[in-house]
Write a protein that binds this DNA or RNA. Structure first.
Lengths: 153, 153
DNA sequence: GCTGAAATGTTCGCTTA
DNA sequence: TAAGCGAACATTTCAGC
């Protein structure tokens, strides 16, 4: 009930590459009829293997070409400050990814903005306003070499 | 022909949150009929604003709980080595993201695997086999605080 | 940008192995 | 328990206004 067989894996492989494949298409690819594929997909959704379906936009076309990586260290490492930081980050729409890390740096953030100026404003008026931030180190992406949301099977 | 009005932006906002919203749903949300919404979506796809539609899977449920950040510096910075590295990375399915960075570190990679042992194997038998790698520094994600593919408007 | 109708896809109860 | 069939319903797609 909670583990995936080869057919489930094949379905997930297809859907994480292209969610617009119809049940019919997938059934054809797997030599099955529509019903079992339909039921498996519903099950994978219900059990939480599939979280959601999204449209992936083109960063450059929509005018947000600047990506920065920002490494943040906290001044004091107590629970309340950490929780506060985590909360604040959720509301900052410029932040696409944020990870609590092992090692010297506490958090690694991936930030997407229109321009370097906007990044400056983001750091100055939003990020550095969060309480208890110690060191804050920004580097910029020159080129996105690879970016996928696919997991391999 | 290449710029977005407010309606386009609203459509993109909806679709990057939930690609399963039907044309009908979106039309209702925007107080429009189906046709204009339908035509705009097709146009946004054709013009490349929307790259693709994908299913987002649950990292933990599918048994791939370990995420590592690996920072790579090249030994020599000539074009051929860089291009080789970029090429090799495309084929490594454990690598979800790879950025060519400004600054001391040349590349930042996000890697997703089943276990620390698998990460070890990845570094030893795949990553460090690539020619001309100098420094290689790994840190691990303790907690994914935020991860979205949405761009804000 | 709207209307409406044909084509396509989804959903689900029932049947079969 | 998992797969298949088929009918009812929903959505997509597109020509014509």
């Amino acid at each position: 009930m909670d583990s995936l067989d080869e057919i489930d894996k094949s379905i997930l492989k297809i859907l994480q590459r292209d969610a617009k494949q119809t049940t019919k298409d997938i059934a054809a690819a797997l030599n099955l009829t529509i019903s079992p594929v339909y039921e498996r997909i519903r099950k994978l959704e219900a059990q939480g293997f599939i979280n959601k379906y999204v449209a992936i936009l083109d960063q450059k076309k929509i005018g947000r070409p600047v990506t920065a990586i920002c490494q943040v260290s906290m001044r004091y490492h107590n629970e309340a400050f950490i929780e506060n930081f985590v909360n604040e980050i959720q509301h900052l729409e410029e932040v696409q990814e944020c990870y609590h890390m092992a090692g010297q740096v506490d958090f690694l953030l991936k930030i997407n903005v229109k321009s370097l100026e906007e990044y400056h404003d983001f750091v100055r008026y939003k990020l550095s306003k969060i309480d208890n931030i110690g060191v804050l180190n920004s580097t910029f992406v020159l080129k996105e070499v690879k970016h996928t949301s696919e997991f391999f099977f």
